[in-house]
């Protein structure tokens, strides 16, 4: 089946995700698998910001002879993304007609939430999986983490994705399993085997247009007004609230009393209320719809 002579040109697999998801582990599994089948494998990766939740990618090329370690734009045969926005970022590397496999889970980076105001829109990919699956020829988008949870261990999500990936490559399931076993902790071998099968059977049954996005609750749905009251009689002007407010909403006036100078910027995080040693600050939150009806304060 996985005959060496069948593959003449190198096969390009691009694996992407964010730090901590296991991109490197997944690509090691694939690289070792190709090696055991006698292919030459080149893998190159960038994981510099991995610990900060930054993007991680790994190029894998295998074939009878591989020269360059990187995949040019538009030349990846398979794009495997462990996170949705990363999938979008690397989509242009996929060749026309290539296989697209993506986990729909969203890891929203801090810089996408720079506007912390309630209800502010996030700078996160707005493409939905259904849209993308429509456009690519062989597209699979799944909620691997959710599937892993039903198997009882969210960490096997990557193995589920490997199961999906295995259907796009010409290696026997047994040889995949043998390699996966080498990478996972001994007591999880069974769950991982299950997860691998789960990925394969999901792919077999996958009908277009696919999947359910694991949509994070959007900020827009929380419609709340915040109101801050400062008891200036109790305030001792220690400056803690002024310096600790992430939005710089507060300041000390000439009497060394805390005052709210930017009520519009307050996100209601309560840091000032919690850290005021004199209990001078109280934050009230009320849902907007209710205040109109009753007019009552909290």
């Amino acid at each position: 089946m996985n005959d060496k002579s069948k593959i003449e040109k190198p096969v390009n697999v691009l694996i992407v995700g964010v730090g901590g998801q296991g991109v490197i582990m997944v690509s090691k599994v694939l690289a070792l698998l190709c090696q055991t089948h006698g292919f030459e494998v080149k893998q190159s990766e960038v994981h510099g910001m991995a610990k900060r939740g930054g993007g991680v990618f790994s190029h894998i090329r295998f074939g009878p002879k591989v020269w360059s370690p990187t995949i040019p734009k538009g030349k990846a045969d398979i794009l495997l993304a462990l996170e949705w926005a990363e999938a979008m970022r690397w989509l242009d590397h996929l060749k026309p007609g290539g296989t697209f496999i993506a986990d729909t889970q969203r890891i929203v980076p801090p810089f996408a939430c720079r506007n912390r105001k309630r209800g502010a829109e996030r700078n996160y990919s707005r493409e939905t999986p259904a849209e993308i699956i429509d456009k690519v020829k062989n597209g699979y988008a799944l909620d691997a983490e959710g599937m892993a949870m039903t198997l009882g261990n969210r960490r096997v999500a990557n193995t589920i994705l490997l199961g999906v990936l295995s259907t796009a490559l010409d290696f026997s399931p047994e040889s995949w399993q043998a390699v996966i076993e080498k990478f996972v902790p001994p007591h999880t071998i069974e769950t991982n085997a299950q997860a691998f099968q789960e990925g394969r059977s999901w792919t077999a049954n996958a009908v277009k247009p696919l999947p359910v996005v694991s949509e994070a609750p959007s900020a827009e749905s929380i419609d709340i007004t915040t109101e801050l009251t400062i008891n200036t009689v109790w305030c001792k002007g220690c400056d803690i609230c002024v310096k600790m407010c992430p939005e710089r909403c507060l300041a000390l006036n000439e009497d060394q009393e805390a005052v709210l100078i930017h009520p519009d910027k307050c996100t209601g995080c309560r840091i000032c209320e919690w850290l005021c040693p004199d209990y001078a600050i109280k934050l009230h939150k009320r849902p907007n719809s209710q205040t109109e009806g009753t007019g009552a304060g909290v």
Partner: peptide, 10 residues
């Protein structure tokens, strides 16, 4: 209140 602790006392 206000209590007798110094400003900023943990």
């Amino acid at each position: 209140f206000p209590h007798f602790l110094c400003p900023g006392c943990g």
